[in-house]
Measured scan of single mutants.
Amino acid sequence: NQASVVANQLIPINTALTLVMMRSEVVTPVGIPAEDIPRLVGMQVNRAVPLGTTLMPDMVKGYA
């Protein structure tokens, strides 16, 4: 099963992502693939992302 990117903490709206904010986990539904974590660093979320939430492509500005 493919691992997805999951929020390791509450990520406030418009926050630029850092490695410490994300972890990989096998979840359903599948979100952004864990191998894209390096690409996500520095990108901003367009909404608040609660701890444990799977990051979906539409949550990250410029990802989709």
Score class of each variant (00 low, 15 high):
35 E>P: 14
42 G>S: 05
48 A>R: 07
9 Q>H: 14
48 A>C: 03
43 M>C: 02
12 P>K: 06
16 A>P: 11
37 I>M: 14
27 V>C: 02
41 V>H: 05
22 M>I: 15
35 E>W: 10
61 K>Q: 13
29 P>S: 05
17 L>A: 01
11 I>A: 02
58 D>V: 11
52 G>C: 02
18 T>F: 12
62 G>S: 05
14 N>K: 04
35 E>G: 09
24 S>T: 07
1 N>S: 13
53 T>L: 09
29 P>D: 12
38 P>R: 13
36 D>A: 04
25 E>A: 14
27 V>G: 12
2 Q>S: 06
26 V>L: 07
47 R>G: 09
49 V>H: 02
10 L>Y: 04
50 P>F: 12
43 M>P: 00
23 R>C: 02
55 L>N: 00
12 P>S: 15
60 V>M: 13
6 V>Q: 14
42 G>D: 10
9 Q>C: 02
39 R>P: 04
59 M>Q: 05
18 T>P: 01
27 V>K: 13
16 A>M: 15
10 L>H: 06
53 T>W: 14
15 T>C: 02
21 M>P: 01
24 S>M: 12
26 V>N: 10
21 M>D: 12
41 V>P: 05
53 T>N: 09
42 G>Q: 06
28 T>W: 08
10 L>M: 10
46 N>Q: 13
8 N>S: 11
52 G>M: 12
27 V>I: 10
42 G>I: 01
3 A>R: 10
5 V>A: 09
61 K>E: 07
50 P>E: 07
22 M>F: 15
47 R>Y: 15
64 A>T: 14
5 V>L: 05
19 L>R: 11
46 N>C: 01
41 V>N: 04
31 G>V: 03
8 N>L: 10
32 I>E: 01
63 Y>M: 07
50 P>N: 10
5 V>K: 00
33 P>W: 13
30 V>G: 03
7 A>Q: 00
59 M>L: 09
16 A>C: 03
53 T>Y: 11
45 V>A: 03
1 N>A: 15
23 R>F: 06
12 P>M: 08
4 S>H: 03
27 V>P: 03
38 P>F: 15
19 L>Y: 12
39 R>L: 08
33 P>V: 13
28 T>R: 03
8 N>C: 02
40 L>C: 02
51 L>S: 13
9 Q>K: 05
41 V>I: 07
53 T>Q: 13
15 T>L: 07
34 A>L: 14
58 D>H: 11
45 V>R: 00
9 Q>T: 06
10 L>S: 10
51 L>V: 09
29 P>A: 09
54 T>S: 09
31 G>F: 02
64 A>D: 15
29 P>V: 10
12 P>T: 10
12 P>L: 14
2 Q>L: 11
11 I>Q: 01
41 V>Y: 06
22 M>D: 01
63 Y>T: 09
64 A>N: 12
25 E>K: 05
36 D>N: 04
63 Y>V: 07
64 A>P: 09
58 D>W: 09
62 G>A: 12
29 P>E: 07
52 G>S: 12
14 N>I: 04
4 S>F: 04
3 A>P: 09
32 I>T: 03
21 M>S: 13
55 L>R: 00
2 Q>N: 14
23 R>Q: 09
33 P>F: 13
4 S>D: 01
53 T>G: 09
1 N>D: 04
1 N>F: 05
45 V>Y: 00
40 L>G: 00
56 M>F: 04
62 G>K: 09
31 G>I: 03
55 L>V: 09
17 L>K: 00
54 T>P: 15
60 V>K: 01
31 G>P: 00
61 K>C: 02
51 L>T: 15
23 R>V: 08
28 T>L: 10
35 E>D: 09
55 L>T: 01
45 V>H: 00
53 T>A: 11
43 M>G: 03
50 P>L: 14
44 Q>G: 12
45 V>P: 07
42 G>K: 04
15 T>A: 08
64 A>K: 02
15 T>P: 01
54 T>V: 11
49 V>C: 02
25 E>N: 11
60 V>Y: 01
20 V>K: 15
50 P>C: 02
41 V>C: 02
51 L>F: 13
37 I>W: 06
5 V>Q: 02
22 M>A: 02
18 T>H: 06
34 A>K: 14
33 P>G: 13
59 M>N: 14
34 A>I: 13
21 M>W: 06
2 Q>V: 13
16 A>L: 14
40 L>Q: 01
8 N>E: 13
11 I>C: 02
32 I>C: 01
3 A>V: 07
28 T>Q: 11
52 G>K: 11
12 P>H: 10
50 P>H: 04
11 I>L: 05
35 E>V: 11
29 P>N: 08
21 M>T: 05
3 A>F: 11
30 V>D: 05
57 P>Q: 08
6 V>Y: 03
8 N>F: 11
35 E>K: 15
34 A>Y: 14
37 I>R: 12
52 G>N: 11
17 L>I: 07
15 T>Y: 09
10 L>A: 05
45 V>N: 05
6 V>R: 06
2 Q>I: 09
4 S>N: 02
30 V>K: 11
19 L>F: 07
57 P>F: 10
37 I>N: 06
36 D>Q: 08
23 R>I: 11
50 P>V: 14
18 T>K: 12
24 S>G: 14
15 T>G: 10
11 I>H: 00
37 I>H: 04
56 M>L: 10
45 V>L: 10
22 M>S: 01
2 Q>H: 15
32 I>H: 01
53 T>P: 00
20 V>Y: 14
14 N>F: 08
22 M>P: 00
46 N>G: 07
64 A>F: 06
64 A>R: 01
49 V>T: 05
56 M>A: 13
33 P>N: 09
55 L>Q: 00
51 L>Q: 13
32 I>M: 07
13 I>H: 15
36 D>C: 03
23 R>K: 13
24 S>R: 12
25 E>W: 04
19 L>G: 05
1 N>P: 13
6 V>S: 04
52 G>T: 06
57 P>M: 06
42 G>P: 01
37 I>L: 12
10 L>K: 12
19 L>S: 11
47 R>S: 07
27 V>N: 07
27 V>S: 04
24 S>Y: 08
34 A>V: 07
57 P>E: 07
24 S>V: 09
64 A>C: 03
41 V>D: 06
29 P>K: 08
22 M>G: 00
55 L>F: 09
13 I>K: 06
39 R>Q: 12
63 Y>P: 15
8 N>P: 03
25 E>Y: 14
38 P>V: 11
10 L>V: 15
60 V>C: 01
7 A>I: 10
10 L>F: 08
42 G>C: 02
52 G>W: 10
9 Q>V: 07
56 M>K: 09
56 M>S: 11
26 V>P: 13
46 N>L: 13
36 D>H: 15
19 L>V: 07
16 A>G: 07
46 N>I: 13
48 A>H: 10
1 N>Q: 15
8 N>R: 04
34 A>S: 11
33 P>Q: 08
15 T>R: 06
14 N>A: 08
50 P>G: 11
20 V>M: 04
11 I>D: 00
6 V>E: 03
28 T>P: 03
21 M>L: 06
62 G>N: 08
32 I>F: 03
54 T>D: 01
15 T>D: 05
10 L>T: 09
33 P>T: 12
19 L>W: 04
42 G>N: 08
59 M>T: 10
5 V>S: 05
8 N>Y: 10
37 I>K: 14
22 M>N: 00
43 M>E: 12
38 P>H: 11
50 P>A: 15
54 T>A: 15
20 V>T: 14
59 M>E: 08
3 A>D: 10
27 V>F: 03
7 A>E: 00
55 L>I: 11
4 S>A: 13
31 G>H: 03
57 P>S: 03
54 T>I: 13
11 I>Y: 01
64 A>S: 12
3 A>Y: 06
45 V>G: 02
19 L>T: 07
23 R>H: 12
40 L>E: 01
24 S>H: 13
30 V>Y: 06
16 A>F: 05
58 D>R: 04
37 I>Q: 06
21 M>C: 02
2 Q>D: 06
36 D>S: 12
55 L>S: 00
25 E>R: 08
61 K>Y: 10
12 P>C: 02
44 Q>N: 05
47 R>V: 11
11 I>N: 00
34 A>C: 02
39 R>N: 14
29 P>C: 02
13 I>T: 14
33 P>R: 15
39 R>H: 14
55 L>Y: 01
37 I>Y: 09
32 I>K: 00
63 Y>W: 09
50 P>R: 14
18 T>S: 05
32 I>R: 00
7 A>N: 03
26 V>T: 08
44 Q>D: 09
27 V>H: 05
52 G>H: 11
8 N>Q: 07
17 L>Q: 00
38 P>T: 08
1 N>E: 13
49 V>A: 08
24 S>E: 13
10 L>Q: 08
34 A>E: 07
36 D>T: 05
60 V>H: 01
41 V>W: 07
23 R>L: 07
47 R>E: 05
58 D>N: 07
47 R>P: 03
18 T>R: 04
41 V>M: 08
32 I>N: 01
54 T>L: 10
